[in-house]
Amino acid sequence: MARPPRFDLDQLLDAAVRLAAASGPAGVTMSAVAKEVGAPSGSVYHRFAGRTVLLAEVWLRTVEHFQEGWFAALEGEGDPRRAGRAAARHVVAWSRAHPEEAALLLYGAQDFGRAEWPDEQAGRADRGRRRVRDAVARLAAALGAADPAARERVSVAVIDLPLSLVRRHLRAGEALPGHAEGLAEECTAALLA
């Protein structure tokens, strides 16, 4: 019977998140991840075909975890304005609860080598992006936002605005202030009014 691996996938990806939060995507190398968890380099190469796949997986896992709650907030309310406010609040609350992952999301997929990702990871990224686009389109339709400028306002309200609030504090190395969720919700409500 095969011996279970000492270092599982989540341990390795957690290490990659820590490295990315501290040093950006450039800090995420196969040897750095191995060193971070105290594993031989072979353990990392056994799980990931190369650095490109490692970067793709750390980005995708982080984005997908973030999006689970964002979709739940956006789709869990009957009233579209309340749903938009809940989605904006989620961006800040999730970032507060997961500061290392939030720091990683300050970069874009392109910073994690998106152009070189294998088909499997590229497909996951494309499906996630389409799902976000479709959710925002449904919210915009429910709000009666018919023209391009109105649809853009909805996207800014539930994505860009709360992310900019998070980004400003994380890039400055500051903790999110206690009022950040409320501020994100208030600003989103004003844009969706």
Rank of each mutant, 00 (worst) to 15 (best):
D14S: 11
R131I: 09
G42M: 07
R61Y: 02
D126N: 02
L12V: 01
T52W: 08
A86H: 08
A56W: 03
A86S: 14
D126S: 12
D134H: 11
E77F: 14
V53K: 10
A88I: 03
W70F: 15
A122D: 01
E75Y: 05
H46S: 09
G38D: 11
E75A: 15
L105A: 03
A87R: 05
R129P: 01
G50F: 07
A73Y: 04
A135R: 06
A97L: 13
S95I: 08
R81I: 09
L106V: 10
R18P: 00
E116W: 13
E101M: 11
T29A: 09
W59K: 00
G84Y: 08
W70I: 08
V33F: 14
E75V: 06
G27L: 06
P40L: 12
T62Q: 02
R47H: 14
D119K: 04
R18Y: 01
G27E: 00
V91N: 09
E77H: 15
A22T: 07
A15S: 06
A86W: 04
T62G: 01
R18D: 12
W59I: 01
R82A: 15
L106G: 03
V37T: 13
G78Y: 03
E101W: 04
G76K: 10
R89V: 15
R133A: 06
R96M: 05
G144D: 03
A115Y: 12
L105D: 02
A26T: 12
F71Q: 10
G113H: 10
G78I: 05
G78A: 15
A49E: 14
A20G: 14
S31D: 13
R89H: 13
A34P: 11
R81L: 04
G42H: 03
W70E: 11
P118K: 01
S43K: 02
Q121D: 11
R18I: 01
L74Y: 14
A87Q: 10
A21D: 05
L54A: 06
A72W: 07
R129H: 03
V136R: 01
